[in-house]
Design a protein around this nucleic acid. Structure first.
Length: 573
RNA sequence: CGGGGCGUAGCGCAGCCCGGUUAGCGCGCAUCGUUCGGGACGAUGAGGCCGGAGGUUCGAAUCCUCUCGCCCCGACCA
């Protein structure tokens, strides 16, 4: 492509409404333009990167035996009503009516559609397993789109759905997809981590998210050498705290603590660390009221409660329920004498003595001994794990980092097949619902994540494999016919060798050409200027580290080949 | 949905409180000249229904009402 003919509108100034680097650079490099909130036009350069990522995904999905198809973005409401999600999905599901007043939605995901398809096309276990995928535009009416394409309303996604006769087959496919995703993100030149994650309200037992590691990431990951999980899912072992400033064996003592409610206030009042307190939280779980105890310095993880009690309905009890349960104002709850079921987080295990509310307004108990002064029904993992906790499978401390979720693999089970009555005849003649898996990759988000991970003050630094162009040829002196001709020649020859080549044939100053080349992030620059006219040498410059080589014209192609090989290897390091 | 902010040239902004010639500035764009290895300089020029509708006024970018759009924080959501 010649830059003089290309629509690659670079911008010198940083756009005012862009907050994160990938958003700024995608605008500045002329990859995309905003049309409305969370809705973008991909310009030629941006589309080219998207296509490269898609191509890698296609190759690897096909390699894993998946088959590509394309479903409509428009979904009739009936299928969503059948699965129950028409009512459950919320406003993120973009709904509208057609001219005949029939309800439709724009597909935010395609479980219903694919399940309906397979329901009508596959009857026998002999046709299983099958893994079908598409790469297509999704629409989710995000409550607050932001960060450019990172949280857009309209975005490109690869979504795959596999159908199996049993869980064994599903697990095999899940493992294969896990490996496939690892290959895909590796080929895209990304530093990433597969992490255990919460399966949430969708159900299913097992899910991994693939996170590109970047500071701008929206999620926190806890990891050690052999463990990684999203922070809302992670479990670890809490290190016991030794310097308990309360003395053991002291007897239960009721202390007047007027208006002292929060953990910090109570700890301050008793002049002890917050970990000496036993925090008592009254929760409404499904339809019952329970107490959950946790060490004063830790926080409750409600999604762990949801999982433990197998219900999506977990919330802190309202003031009235707390009064009824504790006979005290909010802020003075404690386990002693409490008649509702008491669950305790494992952070309290081994705790000899603590301070709790007294279930009486303005009073706390000192010297409360668990298992003596109150009885715990069950110790559960209910805390938010954090960096510094010990790994469950080793003695390493968990570390924390931030990630951008670019993919997820999920064992769905029979949730959708059951709801939509999608079944096949098994070998023994019985009818069974398909066992399903689903596997997504945010394509546009992956592009943004690549930029978050690889850029410098001058612009993008594309991994070679997804760079829109591999090489940019820069003839610096537009008046010098010899160098223009030479640039044209190597542009043609490199293109013939199947490199993606950009030729900056614009009649502008060299500085602008260099700046634009850096901004666009093209991995290799070939500079044709003084060094050619004066020394007869071509200059090759790598974007990633600025390393420069001067080579004889006859050695140009082999030099390029070497650099490319090196760039490709560094991806798989 | 709650709170805050912004809509003025292609982009980034000033002007608005306190109404009054022809609405400015930087970047970009066009023409000419000088320049030419890391976003040059000079000269000239084009480009605006001041987001939209209504109102107040002799007079509105400026004041008032409504409306649309965008951004930020929060709540929400997987």
């Amino acid at each position: 492509m010649r830059l003089s003919e290309a629509l690659i509108p670079t911008v010198k100034e940083t756009p005012s409404d862009a907050e994160i680097i990938s958003h700024k650079l995608m605008i500045r490099a002329g990859m995309m333009r905003k049309l409305g909130a969370g809705v973008y036009t991909y310009l030629p350069l941006g589309l080219k990167v998207i296509r490269k990522v898609e191509q890698i995904i296609r190759e690897e999905m096909n390699r894993a035996g998946a088959q590509e198809l394309l479903m409509p973005i428009l979904s009739p409401a009936e299928l969503w009503q059948e699965s129950g999600r028409w009512d459950v999905y919320g406003k993120e599901l973009m709904r509208f009516k057609d001219r005949h007043d029939r309800d439709f939605a724009l597909g935010p995901t395609h479980e219903e559609i694919i399940t309906a398809l397979v329901r009508s096309e596959i009857r026998s276990y002999r046709q299983l397993p099958v893994n079908l995928y598409q790469i297509q535009t999704k629409f989710r009416d995000e409550i607050r789109p932001r960060f450019g394409v990172m949280r857009a309303r309209e975005f490109v996604m690869k979504d795959a759905y596999s159908f199996h006769r049993d869980t064994a087959s599903l697990e095999k496919c899940y493992k294969l997809m896990f490996e496939t995703y690892t290959r895909i993100f590796k080929r895209c030149g990304l530093h990433f981590k597969p992490v255990l994650a919460d399966s949430g309200a969708i159900g299913g037992d097992k899910t991994h998210e693939f996170h590109v590691l970047a500071d701008a990431g929206e999620s926190e990951i806890l990891y050690s050498s052999d463990y990684a999980a999203s922070s809302e899912y992670a479990s670890g072992r809490i290190q016991p705290i030794k310097n308990n400033s309360l003395k053991e064996g002291g007897s239960l003592e009721k202390i007047y603590t007027p208006g002292i409610k929060t953990v910090e206030e109570v700890a301050g009042f008793f002049k002890v660390e917050t970990h000496c307190l036993i925090k008592t939280l009254i929760y409404k779980v499904a339809n019952s009221i329970i107490a959950v105890l946790i060490r004063g310095d830790r926080e409750i993880n409600e999604s762990k409660l949801q999982r433990h009690f197998k219900t999506p309905f977990v919330e802190l009890a309202d003031e009235q329920s707390i009064r009824t349960a504790t006979h005290a104002d909010v802020g003075f709850a404690g386990p002693v004498g409490l008649s509702i079921p008491i669950y305790a987080d494992v952070s309290l295990k081994g705790m000899e003595v603590g301070i709790t509310g007294a279930n009486e307004t303005d009073y706390h108990f000192k010297n409360v001994h668990p298992d003596k002064d109150f009885t715990v029904r069950e110790y559960i993992d209910a805390h938010i794990s954090k960096a510094g906790d010990l790994c469950i499978s080793s003695d390493d401390e968990l570390k924390s980092c931030r990630g951008i979720e670019v993919g997820q693999v999920f064992q769905l089970g029979t949730k959708y097949s059951s709801a939509l009555h999608a079944a096949f005849d098994d070998e023994d003649g019985s009818e069974k619902p398909f066992v399903m898996g689903c596997y997504g990759i945010g394509v546009t988000r992956t592009v943004a994540a690549a930029i978050e991970q690889s850029h410098d003050k001058d612009g993008i630094i594309w991994p070679y494999s997804i760079a829109p162009y591999h090489i940019i040829v820069l003839p610096l002196n537009s008046d010098d016919h010899a160098s223009i001709q030479y640039a044209e020649k190597i542009y043609a020859e490199l293109s013939a060798l199947h490199y993606d080549v950009l030729l900056d044939d614009r009649d502008i100053r060299p500085g602008v050409k260099f700046k634009d080349a850096d901004l666009l992030g093209i991995p290799i620059k070939i500079v044709i200027g003084k060094s050619l006219s004066a020394e007869g040498l071509i200059e090759i410059k790598k974007r990633i580290d600025g390393e420069t080589f001067k080579v004889l014209p006859e050695n140009l192609f082999s030099a390029i080949e070497n650099i490319v090989r090196e760039l490709e290897i560094s991806v798989h390091e």
